[in-house]
Design a protein around this nucleic acid. Sequence first.
DNA 1: GCATATCGTAAAAGCGGTTTCAGAAAGCGC
DNA 2: GCGCTTTCTGAAACCGCTTTTACGATATGC
Lengths: 343, 343
Amino acid sequence: MTAANAQEPQRRATIAHVAEAAGVSAPTVSRVINHPASVTAATRSRVEAAIRELNYRPSAIARGLAYGRTMTVGAVVPFLTHPSAVQRVRGLIEGLRTSPLPLSLYDVESPQHRVEHFELLTSGHPPMGTVVVGLGPTPDELGALRSVGTPVVFVDVDIPGFSRVIVDHREGGRLATQHLIGLGHERIGFVGDAEGNAFGFTSSARHHRGYVEVLTAAGLPVEDALSMTGPHGRAEARTLAERMLTNSERPTAVFAASDTQAMGVIDAAARLDLSIPADLSVIGFDDIEMSEYVGLTTIRQPLEESGRRAAEILLEAISAPDSGAVCEQLPLELVVRETTGAR
Amino acid sequence: MTAANAQEPQRRATIAHVAEAAGVSAPTVSRVINHPASVTAATRSRVEAAIRELNYRPSAIARGLAYGRTMTVGAVVPFLTHPSAVQRVRGLIEGLRTSPLPLSLYDVESPQHRVEHFELLTSGHPPMGTVVVGLGPTPDELGALRSVGTPVVFVDVDIPGFSRVIVDHREGGRLATQHLIGLGHERIGFVGDAEGNAFGFTSSARHHRGYVEVLTAAGLPVEDALSMTGPHGRAEARTLAERMLTNSERPTAVFAASDTQAMGVIDAAARLDLSIPADLSVIGFDDIEMSEYVGLTTIRQPLEESGRRAAEILLEAISAPDSGAVCEQLPLELVVRETTGAR
DNA sequence: GCATATCGTAAAAGCGGTTTCAGAAAGCGC
DNA sequence: GCGCTTTCTGAAACCGCTTTTACGATATGC
């Protein structure tokens, strides 16, 4: 027995083996698995026994080929290694835990990746479902996505007609600015992402809009010199902030469009020997994990939950293909810690 | 033209279409893609033109079925959402960036997941390559893994005969303990993972061994009451540490087997109004991202690099299947920050 | 009791590739 | 220019599963 096992390298059972063992044909086995109701109870239990007996698992790949899709959930995530993206992916994984579909990750670090991955997702064998994080797709991509007939959930992108999990970034910008004004600040800077980036990110621009709205409403001037944008990143933000802070009339508070950028602002302050929050208040956006430890005041968006909800909505859509698009708006919350203070 | 395009939903080109367009047979197209040398230059360029013309991309899934493997890289990662795992996954993604193979993630949170995923990886259509992080496989699993014939790279598990990327945990334990002793501490506690956990993690036990070695060598007593183990986690570590620290003769320093656990120890100290490092020195292991911000002294292991190297080794093995197993040991480094001080 | 509707299963075709195998074409020596 | 070997290409088989189609077997009608 053991010898026999050793000889034969445990060739995986196929549907044909099961069929033979159960004394039925392959299609019947397939039916037992996919449409159990269409098979007599007697046959079914015979087949099920054989399946158990042979420890049979249908090949996801063969099944995918026949079915016309890849048996995975695809996730396109720009800058997958950024802390906020990581948090969302955590949520995705959480939300997918009940499903047998593995998660295939597609990192996007350049426009090049972006088109490659979109091609993949809209290819002849698209994944069972797709989550797209943060990328504003072009009309072409949108059309392709729609025509594959496989559900898509967007996260942090508001695209009518598609399921999506979003937050109100403009409101976030308002919340942050309001907080600063409430503390008595009047010269408030903004550090965010450059607009017109190749990925279609718009959250930073929305934050800025909220920021402008609140400043204007409070009768405070909106100075161009106090709004700086550049590529995303902590170091980049530091450079920007250093420039802003060495200005003759420097702001007493800065709203950064992301916590990562807020860290850069804090770095800049440290370099310039400005103490926080005495000399400079800093508020971020996201509430990435690190923020709690640094004591960063920020606008919290439920990153992990966004991933989880997206996964749940996607799984739902996979099992009930014709349910309409759902739009879920998650709440934002001001989290006051130690980097903001009264002027 | 536009109308025609709208009509026909842009059916993806298959190998047959390309073959027809190039006036050759399907196998020839396949050959052009997979064994270009075996095709005349003239035919080849004709086929290549057709491929470009039709924007043809071979279906990964069909190809996988024919080839007997799934066209992905699989990664089995226990507690995928833990900070250290996240760092490694980052490295994996980095290292895989040059490859067209997407990364399929298999999170392991329970023994149940573990067997499921191992089954998947050793199924009829295994992924092109597999990375296994931190799980000590059973002999059975090992045999299965070996017999699938697809390369495997272990990370943080030292299994002779398989490629692996490891660090010397025992040495890490020594380093940490030495540091504490060097600061004048004589009562040094240890907080780590319970042994015999269902996942086969052994790093904590190795840290402990190094710890015992150094204590013994220094002529310091090894007290059972100062070594506590339990389930992994910050909260769990806090509980353990609270117990240890409320002991009549409490330690003046604690070595935690991971940074996460070190955070728990710090939490416990805060609760007991012990100031760090004045009343208690704490050293961790890993150097997760957060540690820098918290100022945690720790033994740094190159988490991200471990993932990156694993990916590189795996890709190498995929392209040159018969190269032997490689074992790469990554360096450990003491990083002194603010949580340790002289007694 | 026979013709007819219904159900359950099997046979066959296809998903999109790759590989084996055999035959045609080309290259070589004489 | 003939016969041989060597190349290159196409036909066929196959990977494992699903779905459509067709048929044989029951159940139903009268």
